[in-house]
């Protein structure tokens, strides 16, 4: 489990909102990838909720720039199990690359949901100046970090830990102030796959 460090100057309200968004985004990504029945997914979500809360490692607000660092860690065996369920394969058939791929994709999906939450938050406030709220959020960057060498994967004494890091870098003042006032109860997020037709 990663160290639980919250380094922030932002208000408790904004921090709590973002924290919940991260948790909910991860849970949605987890559920989608595990593809169980709704009941199975819910059971899984509840079991995971506490763990996810510990994965939010850093929330910083300084000089009108909001930075969120959100680590998600899987041990290699748990990543293999995760991938096996997602791919409907035997755990023994999941090699390291596939395990990495599954954790990376999980992170990618969580970012997708997180962006939606932040977009929805604007809509909830009805800020007419923010007609395209998602475009105000700088690209969420997903990186798979290797803490020991700044490259891909972290090796530890206990084996291999797969760690994804999500950075959100928000500089827009309206977005920042919005985060103070919105709770998840204001928000609704679609189940994915919103389509723009040309």
């Amino acid at each position: 489990m990663s160290a639980h460090k919250i380094n922030t100057t932002t208000s408790d309200g904004a921090r709590a909102t973002i924290g919940r968004m991260c948790v909910e985004s991860s849970l949605k990504a987890f559920s989608i990838m595990q593809r169980g029945t709704e009941a199975e997914q819910n059971a899984c979500d509840v079991a995971r909720l506490k763990e996810f809360e510990h994965w939010i490692t850093s929330i910083v607000l300084a000089h009108n720039c909001f930075k969120l660092t959100f680590h998600v860690r899987f041990s290699l065996p748990s990543a293999q199990q995760f991938a096996a369920k997602a791919l409907d394969r035997e755990v023994s058939k999941i090699d390291l690359n596939l395990a990495k791929d599954s954790v990376g994709e999980f992170c990618n999906m969580a970012v997708g949901h997180l962006k939606r939450y932040l977009g929805e938050a604007h809509n909830a406030l009805g800020d007419s100046a923010m007609t395209t709220p998602i475009s105000k959020i700088n690209d969420a960057k997903m990186a798979v970090m290797d803490h020991s060498s700044d490259q891909t994967w972290m090796l530890s004494a206990n084996g291999i830990n797969l760690c994804c890091m999500i950075h959100l870098d928000i500089r827009d003042p309206a977005t920042l102030s919005m985060l103070e006032g919105v709770t998840l109860e204001h928000l609704s997020v679609s189940d994915g796959g919103d389509v723009i037709f040309f």
């Binding site: 997708g112 949901h113 994915g192 796959g193 723009i196």
Partner: peptide, 11 residues
């Protein structure tokens, strides 16, 4: 068309 991830199979 442009579809945002995570995708929904039916959509």
């Amino acid at each position: 068309a442009w579809m945002t991830k995570p995708f929904n199979a039916a959509k």
